[in-house]
Simulated assay, not measured.
Amino acid sequence: MNFLPTLRDLVIVYQAFERYSAPNIKALGLTMTQFDVIATLGNQPPMTCKELGEKTLVTKGTLTGVLERLELKGVIFREANSGDGRSQLIALTKEGQQLFEKVFPEHLDFLNQAFSKLSNEENVEIQHALKKLNSIF
């Protein structure tokens, strides 16, 4: 059970990141989940709900409600998928793309304030460690 300290540190880091990141996203007028969806759809071709779910950190059950709310706000639209009649394609509206172009760089600048405290070598080292950890699951 020598992995327990690693597991604990991983959870602590994730929670710290959430505490740091969430207030900035809230100040931009979004929830973390809405930001995740908008950031994933930004500058991308329309994608199915399944593809969107695979590319975000959002569960299918949560994603449905978030998409409904974003659609009501005029941020996304859905259209029939001509390649698969059982699914819909989801994309940002013009207003949604403008929102993405505003909030995404602002949030990246905010995150850069923290990540810039790491050297390039430290960033690479962390990336390798996280990829290795991910590969075991």
Rank of each mutant, 00 (worst) to 15 (best):
F35S: 06
I25W: 02
G29S: 00
D36F: 02
R19W: 09
A39Q: 13
F35C: 05
T31Y: 03
K26F: 05
G29V: 03
T6D: 14
Q15E: 10
A27G: 07
Q15W: 00
Y14A: 12
D36P: 03
L41S: 05
L30Y: 08
Y14T: 11
R19P: 03
T40N: 07
L30W: 05
T31K: 07
L41H: 09
V13C: 11
L30G: 03
T40S: 13
F17G: 10
T31F: 01
Q15V: 07
Y14C: 10
I38F: 00
A27S: 12
I38W: 01
F35V: 04
R8I: 12
L4D: 13
L41K: 05
T33I: 14
Y20I: 00
L30N: 07
R8F: 07
V11G: 03
Q34A: 08
Q15R: 12
N24R: 11
P5F: 08
T33E: 13
M32I: 15
D36H: 04
A39P: 03
T6G: 13
L30K: 05
A16C: 12
A16F: 09
I25K: 02
I38G: 01
D9F: 11
I25F: 02
F35Y: 15
I25Y: 00
S21C: 06
M32R: 13
D36I: 05
I38V: 13
T40H: 05
F3L: 15
V11Q: 11
L28E: 03
A39C: 06
V13D: 07
F35P: 02
A16Q: 14
F35R: 14
D36E: 13
P5W: 09
L28P: 02
V37T: 09
P23V: 02
R19V: 14
L10I: 08
A16I: 06
L10D: 06
E18V: 15
L4A: 12
Q15F: 03
L41Y: 05
L7E: 11
T33R: 11
Y20C: 04
P23L: 00
E18P: 02
V13G: 10
L7R: 12
L10H: 12
E18Q: 14
F17T: 10
F3K: 15
G29A: 00
I25A: 00
T40F: 06
G29F: 01
F17M: 14
D9M: 11
P23D: 05
F17P: 04
I12N: 15
L4W: 12
V13E: 13
T31P: 03
L7M: 15
M32E: 15
N24T: 02
T40Q: 04
P5V: 08
